[in-house]
Amino acid sequence: MSAPAIKVENVWVRFRPYVDRRPTLRRSLATFRHKETQLVEALKGVSFEVQKGEAFGVVGQNGAGKSTLLRVMARTLRPDEGRVVVRGRMSTLLQLGVGFNAQLSGSRNIYLGGLVAGLNKKQVDERYDEIVEYSELGDAIYRPMKTYSSGMFSRLAFAVAMHLDPEILLLDEVLAVGDEGFKEKSMATMHELLDRSGSIVFVSHAVRQLADFCDRAAWLDEGRVRAIGEAHGVVEEYREFVQRRRKELRAQGLA
């Protein structure tokens, strides 16, 4: 088997609460004086690999560390311990339309979105027509994006992201966007990416969809990998856990 697309090795991420609360000079001085900082450990020694050509899902409850994990993989957040090795061009759709300026036309935002992801102007020029066609926006492409419906907005964002020729795609909650027709098209594009031995990491609460789409999945619980393996199995285990928890909570509520 060829080298994995993403290798996450024993990653620890700790946040200091005062850091999270946007430290003020005073709070910083206080922690400086006391020297004791209460650590919140968002990821506690997470390790796994994502292979080439694989769709990998991550499930877990709110606060389990999924977003932190995505940021570590996108390498915008540096882990306190451990490392992440990424082989291939990565495109992130952690939030749709990041880097877009709603005041500007869709057309200009194609350039902004492409450039922010690391292309140069010439490379965007080459892809421009295809992106417009893929987005199915027609003449609306020349209107400011603030006039777009949310569906139009995400169609353009998705079109740009998919034309960056990603080898690895990180998706947060978004797998398919737009109306039914466009959803089908975007799913087909995802499968094409996988067939070209690209990799997709998909984090979502839509666990059924995730299980159907992904080959393997990891269940993240309080910063640790609780289960990893074939997607349906992991998702089933996770669902049982959530249902059990819910029953327990309901029982406590009744007692």
Binding site: V72, R75, R78, P79, R83, V84, V85, V86, R87, G88, R89, L115, V116, G118, N120, K121
Partner: peptide
């Protein structure tokens, strides 16, 4: 293209690599 984090500085290992990356992204 292989990248590994953490590296000594965030984006590139050396100052001149960082500057080269900036230059590469001048259109942006």
């Amino acid at each position: 293209m292989t990248t590994t984090t953490p590296s000594p500085v965030y984006y590139a290992r050396r100052f001149n690599e960082y500057m080269a990356e900036l230059w590469r992204r001048r259109d942006f």
